[in-house]
């Protein structure tokens, strides 16, 4: 599990809150990669796009359509926030797949902050937009009256579990993939099963490429779903 250790970049072993660490390095690389794609890649502003520009447009269209479809027309103004989260997670996940790299999104501290930020802003947004009637989200008026208090309790529990599942899903997926690869890599030291181990690492790596994207997608689309609940709390 050494690959998950946070180390200061410039020597020393004390990690202050401001110390530039490998977290800083790999997050900065994610910022660079995002800038390269979204800013440098679109510098031509071409009507007939270059390859990089069309990828940037594809990412834009993908997230934009997701926000529009899930959260509705009035969710579109929160699109830059969701785009930020999605691109950060995608690039952090993929950068984490580079051998010897550090996966920032495999840390619960990172994903929990993002999930809490989503949870808090969505909840506050709900109350700001709808006042007390936001609580109707928990009062399912289409259910029989007897069931409604029970359903309300279930709904409230599930609402408060959201940030937990939201963050642990991403961090757990990323950590598990890397840990499995690490386990197979340890088997690689034994000559007899080394070929099998290498094959397994290749297969898991391919799976991880898929998981990296899917988890970013899941994180973004769940954010959209929560946003939809805040914008339209009435069932």
């Amino acid at each position: 599990m050494d690959q998950f250790i946070v180390k200061p970049l410039f020597g020393g072993d004390v990690v202050h809150w401001y110390t530039p660490t490998n977290v800083t390095l790999w997050m900065a690389l994610a910022v660079l990669a995002i800038s390269a794609l979204m800013v440098f890649g679109t510098r031509g502003r071409a009507v007939v796009p270059s390859r990089t520009q069309s990828i940037a447009e594809l990412a834009y269209g993908f997230v934009y359509k997701m926000v529009e479809d899930v959260a509705g027309k009035d969710g579109v103004k929160y699109f830059p926030y969701i785009m930020t989260l999605f691109l950060f997670i995608v690039f952090a996940n993929f950068l984490g797949l580079i051998p010897m790299s550090f996966t920032t999104t495999s840390h619960i501290a990172v994903t929990a902050i993002m999930a809490m930020a989503v949870f808090l802003s969505v909840t506050i947004l709900g109350f700001v937009k709808h006042g007390a009637s936001f609580l109707q989200l928990f009062w399912i008026s289409s259910a029989p009256l007897v069931l409604r208090p029970i359903l309300a309790i279930i709904e409230i529990i599930s609402y408060f579990v959201r940030p937990v599942s939201h963050s642990i899903r991403l961090a757990g997926n990323m950590m598990a993939g890397h840990a499995v690869i690490k386990v197979f890599a340890a088997f690689g030291a034994v000559v007899a099963i080394a070929p099998l181990s290498i094959f397994a690492i290749t297969a898991i790596y391919a799976l991880e490429v898929l998981v990296s994207f899917i988890q970013a997608y899941v994180f973004a689309i769940l954010t959209c779903v929560y946003l939809k609940d805040a914008l339209h709390p009435h069932h």
Binding site: V6, V15, H16, W17, Y18, T19, T21, V23, T24, M27, A28, A30, V31, I34, S35, M38, V39, P80, Y81, M83, T84, L85, L87, F88, T104, H107, A109, V110, I113, M114
Partner: peptide, 17 residues
């Protein structure tokens, strides 16, 4: 440390985007 750098990163990405 992680939270600090995450916030910095997200703010930078948000501004760039």
């Amino acid at each position: 440390n992680q939270i600090f750098w995450l916030v910095v990163t997200l703010v930078v990405i948000y501004l760039i985007l």
